[in-house]
Design a protein around this nucleic acid. Sequence first.
DNA 1: CTCATGTCAGAGAGACTGAAATAT
DNA 2: CATATTTCAGTCCCTCTGACATGA
Lengths: 153, 153
Amino acid sequence: MTKSIQPASMSKLGKAFLTWRRYLQKQIQEHQITLKQLSVLRRLENVPFLHPFEVAEMLFCDRPTATVIINNMRRYGWVETRKDPGNRKYQQIFLTESGMEKLDEINQAEHLQSGKLFDPLACFSNEEQAEFDRLLMKLNQHLLSIDKEDQDE
Amino acid sequence: MTKSIQPASMSKLGKAFLTWRRYLQKQIQEHQITLKQLSVLRRLENVPFLHPFEVAEMLFCDRPTATVIINNMRRYGWVETRKDPGNRKYQQIFLTESGMEKLDEINQAEHLQSGKLFDPLACFSNEEQAEFDRLLMKLNQHLLSIDKEDQDE
DNA sequence: CTCATGTCAGAGAGACTGAAATAT
DNA sequence: CATATTTCAGTCCCTCTGACATGA
């Protein structure tokens, strides 16, 4: 009897995630940017600036990792940082001209236009999409209690 | 209007996956082993040997990546490789004594006993579990057509 | 003091490319 | 010849730990 580390459903979930992430990464690879970097750029289209801890939250990573990602983006000149004048322990991350150009380049790419990308959920009926989303929300809610369990140990 | 890279459900799926993987990794980190390495060891409990391309398939990664992972495991002495006598372009990957000891160590760890681990699906009723699994299978089936789409380009 | 925020160094895994060797 | 398997070198991103500095 094979001893598995995780329930079969979680393996399937992982497989779906990896397949999808690989596909997205491949679609943008010619633009020399990673998915996480693009996520940050896109977010910066809609807010004046981000704090590093907000980047960590949205990318669902820890703060040191966010620092690495931000530094990579600074190296490419897509963002720059300033001290928050109101609270000097914060950093503000701003989109640069170069970062906006990068975004334009990507947003105008033919195969990245909305409707051109593969739709992962196209296999679902509306009811199934809603149910899938509901189950994922429930799962994420449940997974939050992992942290509490950790503290008990 | 925020332009997102992916449907909201896929973000939720990614979040669930990362949370779960992080939890599992943390559970075994004291044993100085990664999840992929442990998956390979566990599989080798049940088959006489593996070919590298089989490792790539089960880990859902490409073959060069599988080579890296196998080499890391060889470095720790958990596996060793021999030429397949029947087909000399194949390698056979075998579990070593040291690898078996590593497995024993992990299998006997108190907090890794079955039933002790956090159950990610405990939030679901039996019906929901079945539905979740069914939807994930359907999604994975659908995602297979990504490759076909790629070839058309 | 405490707490949250941010950075840094270092290590390591993993992913990818391009090239090559090998065997079918 | 073409094809499939495997490895290798090299690069890069991400992740984590542990420590530390900063400022509220």
